[in-house]
Write a protein that binds this DNA or RNA. Structure first.
Lengths: 395, 395
DNA sequence: GCAAAAAGATGAAACGTTTCGCTTTCGTCT
DNA sequence: AGACGAAAGCGAAACGTTTCATCTTTTTGC
């Protein structure tokens, strides 16, 4: 909260606005020997109608605009004047007009965050630490969701860019590299931008992502080590980089251990049943695909489910069928850390460092906004953590 | 846009003349402790590309500023000129500077939305329809979360108010009526504001809430009709109006049916075990309190759980203990509609009209922002819907 | 105690719009 | 053809800041 600001800052004033019945005229405080004595009260009805401006502060305190502005922005003034300004500011309930300020400075001290949805804990958690990081540096973050909608995704980005924010954090889905480039360059200078969770192929940009490949690799590897050879996976829409990478990690693990991969992604309906199921990252997908797996002629002996909602769906379906995860069937879920701790036997879960993601995204964005020129595309690939709860018992 | 690659981007040259190691970064909003003599001002980072303004459009098209502005804001111009302007705009890649516009018009066409968290589906859903409603009227909505934090809640509101938005939608928690009033009046005119989901006692304001009392009343009534007489409830923090009302509904139902209410809210630890448990609206609360109930000497034969996360927690705990909800114990949850449909036997669930809430909130806010003076505090109390899945079988 | 340097204060010029009050132009009707 | 009202175009003055380039005051070093 107090950002090291040693002196009064109008934005923080808390209780001042008990607007006392304005006595009708300015009574300049102990006017020493300033040249221009204040006489003209601005406007009589100022109280309700108009917000006071820096000019009013100037008149009230007998100091110049420039001085007030300098002080308000952290500059130095004589002690005596500092006092006068503080007094005027509180008396008038002055608050800086951010539009005017932004017009001059070309900066708004705000950051736009664009997410596919606001209904999943994963993003909520990222947002939380992101916001905190930015806030500590004096920025405010505004979130908007495009609700998985392509047009909205673009629109939100454009609106943000148009003039409202100093930087953008984006979890992209449909938008193309070309569009992103257009957006990024639609201002005078290149708009600072950081991608989180997902990357867009062809768009070079700072990004914070998970090492998805190794996340599922590790998860599957663990299942293999527990003796499983017939392992299924539920992934998300493959146009999302994250989902795709997770699938690749799965395949690679199987390959590396010399296990044949069912019928491959496209071989659906072949003689062999497909152990790679594509969901939509939602609860229902997890629920449905889990049942689909269980209904196979030769069901997998272990399952990997690759995001929060689908994990919840799968867990629900399992309970319902009286399938005990981790016992009747090997299981690794994603993200649902609270769940894995609570359920018994505990689930193996891949935990993503959401807090760290948000923080890193914020840090990089701050650097870019400060004009630091880092080696070009700064891609941070964070490690996920595998809560290993596999027991000795095995298939 | 023609700014693709028609010409070489001058930014590359921006290292220009003096390439002195400008150590400074753009300072954050406030200077750090003032200290050393002043050094090179941050103007070093001057951007070369300059965005085109309405003036450029004027020059390019040979028309006056006023005309351009009028046209851009929907006014009429001659066909010939309309064409000229359009041409100029696309050629120059002109985009209106919203800060300048807002400075003049005193409106930003944005709405701030303040929520306790962005990690729960309930708010996500409200936000989605709210955003849509506002967007259709030309407004953009920015969301921020205060993460259940009191100071943050206030700070977010202040920042929004300061000059950035034309209206506010708020799901309040800690903030007091006095503070809200202060915030609402901290501008020239009264800031349009709508509360959702929760009200703040003493603060008269348009609000969209659920008929919480009757929601739990109905839920409990249904359990009673199914033959239950020993019914527990898990409610949220009682300083949240919503949670409190839900508790009252529970009590009243019991009263109306002449059932004695356990030991009452404060009688914890008395001879009789307390059938009203207070959680924190999160997954763990539901999980823990469910177990707590089951571990009682005389466990309730039915349970009402009053929000999404706690319902999920309770369901999880139940599965784990092999308690079949709706069979071994009467059960009514909240919000988890997807779950209730999927689980078997299906759960009884209270569904809140989140979409409608968002929409109504948007509509009222729009009216207020348009200056309509409605009869003072417009309080809309929406009915929730009880998915009744109680079977004939009973305790 | 004096000059020089540092620090502080100031007026004015922006920033990119909208808008007010006029002037010009354009159809139209006798 | 002339006149006239309506429509369209125009210059200039805001909106509330920040920030130059100058002045003025204070501090400092000797």
């Amino acid at each position: 909260m107090s950002d090291g600001n040693t002196h009064f800052s109008p934005e923080q004033q808390s209780e001042t606005s008990e607007k006392q019945p304005f006595s009708g005229h300015f009574h300049a405080p102990t006017h020493p020997k300033r040249k221009k004595p204040v006489e003209t009260p601005p406007t009589a009805v100022r109280q309700v109608i108009t917000l006071s401006t820096i000019k009013d502060v100037s008149k009230f305190s007998g100091l110049s605009l420039a001085t007030i502005s300098k002080y308000l922005n952290g500059g130095n003034v004589r002690d005596e004047n500092r006092q006068r300004i503080d007094e005027a500011v509180t008396a008038l309930g002055y608050r800086v007009n951010r539009n005017a300020r932004s017009l001059k400075t070309n900066r708004t001290m705000t950051v736009g965050v664009v997410m596919p949805t606001l209904s999943v804990p994963f993003f909520g958690s990222v947002l939380s630490s992101l916001d905190q990081t930015l806030r500590e540096a004096g920025y405010t973050s505004f979130v908007c969701s495009y609700d998985f909608d392509r047009d909205l995704e673009l629109e939100k980005l454009r609106v943000l860019c148009n003039n409202n924010v100093d930087g953008i954090v984006l979890a992209a889905q449909h938008v193309s590299a070309r569009e992103l480039n257009e957006i990024r360059n639609s201002r005078g200078s290149e708009m600072p931008m950081v991608l989180v969770d997902r990357t867009i192929s062809g768009f070079v940009c700072d990004s914070i992502v998970i090492d998805n490949l190794n996340a599922t690799y590790g998860a599957v590897e663990q299942l293999i080590n527990a003796g499983h050879r017939h392992i299924g996976i539920i992934v998300g829409p493959l146009d999302i980089s994250t989902a795709n990478e997770r699938m690749v990690g799965y395949r690679r693990a199987l390959e590396d251990y010399g296990i044949e991969i069912s019928s491959g992604l496209h071989g659906k309906g072949g003689a062999q049943e497909d152990l790679i199921q594509i969901g939509r990252y939602d609860f229902e997908s997890g629920y449905r695909q889990f049942n689909h797996f269980m209904d196979m002629k030769k069901p997998p002996t272990a399952l990997c489910v690759t995001n929060y909602d689908m994990t919840m769906g799968a867990v629900t379906a399992a309970h319902e069928r009286n399938v005990i995860l981790g016992k009747d069937i090997g299981f690794v879920g994603f993200d649902a850390v609270d769940l894995c701790r609570i359920v018994s036997p505990p689930l193996s879960i891949v935990e993503q460092p959401t807090q760290l993601m948000g923080q890193k995204a914020g840090e990089i964005l701050l650097k870019r906004m400060a004009g630091e020129t880092l080696p070009h595309p700064q891609v941070i690939r964070l490690k996920s953590y595998l809560h290993n709860r596999i027991y000795q018992e095995q298939k």
